[in-house]
Simulated scan of single mutants.
Amino acid sequence: MKKNIFCFIIILFVINLFGGCAIVENEESLDLKELNYEEIADKLIRFHVIANSDSEEDQALKLKVRDRIIDKMSIKLEKAESLDQARDILNSSIEEVNSIAREVIIEEGFDYDVNTMLSNENFPDKIYGDYVFPQGTYEAYRVIIGSGEGQNWWCVMFPPLCFVDESKNIVDTKKLDENIANLDDKVEENKEDNKKVIFKFKVVEVFNKIFN
């Protein structure tokens, strides 16, 4: 029995090894780069819209609420030149954002409550454009629809990377690169040589799951 289990583990390892090679090749072609959490965590504000549930209707509603809020807040955040200014704008707009969301919810025939807040939350690894935002605590502007038990949609609200096109889905990689670079403008010059871009491959996660 033990011999069979050992053989099964070896076979599984070989399958993942060759399968992982293909995954690595694909990840390299995408050039996914993991950002340094310590360098970005306190320099941006994320935007999350959390659906009431994962039902098709609630997920569709989430995106409609997202669109209406982005259309309004993109104009306001154009004036923000710093994180503090963006934070002030977002905090002073909470009631307005709640009203916008409620308006959409009622238009779509639902009766969910909405709670909007600017808070520090812990998030898992997330891919955004060509970047991997590492797991950690980030400041986030969160719009929670109803019970907030569904999947969320997110973007970087400041610097304003959410507002790329009318679909709200496309990330302008060039603009993202420029804004990520600008996040480090105030970092001391002697830290520049220590910056590293870490390539993150799914095959590593697969092996970790197998052997842990």
Rank of each mutant, 00 (worst) to 15 (best):
F199L: 12
A41D: 04
A41C: 09
N4D: 15
T137R: 10
N169Y: 15
S167C: 06
I210D: 09
D71R: 13
F211R: 04
L17F: 15
D88I: 05
N98I: 05
I105M: 13
I198K: 14
K174Y: 11
L30K: 08
K186P: 11
N169S: 13
N52H: 15
I45Y: 00
V156E: 00
G19D: 10
I145W: 02
S29A: 08
K33N: 09
M157Y: 08
S29C: 04
F163C: 14
D184T: 02
A51H: 04
D193H: 10
D54M: 02
F8W: 10
K186M: 12
I127R: 03
I105K: 09
G136Q: 05
K43N: 12
C155I: 06
E28C: 07
Y128A: 04
V97C: 02
F123C: 08
F110R: 10
D185S: 12
T116A: 14
S93G: 09
F158I: 08
Y141A: 07
L17Y: 13
F207E: 02
I198D: 12
S93E: 07
G20M: 05
V164C: 14
K209E: 15
P124A: 01
I100T: 01
Y141M: 06
K191P: 02
Q59W: 01
N208G: 11
I170G: 03
K64C: 08
F18G: 03
K2Y: 09
W154D: 10
P134D: 02
G19P: 03
L83V: 09
V164F: 13
E139N: 06
N194R: 14
F199K: 11
V104T: 07
I106T: 12
D125Q: 01
I9H: 13
P159V: 05
I127P: 03
C21L: 14
E34F: 05
L30R: 08
E81L: 11
K175C: 05
E103F: 03
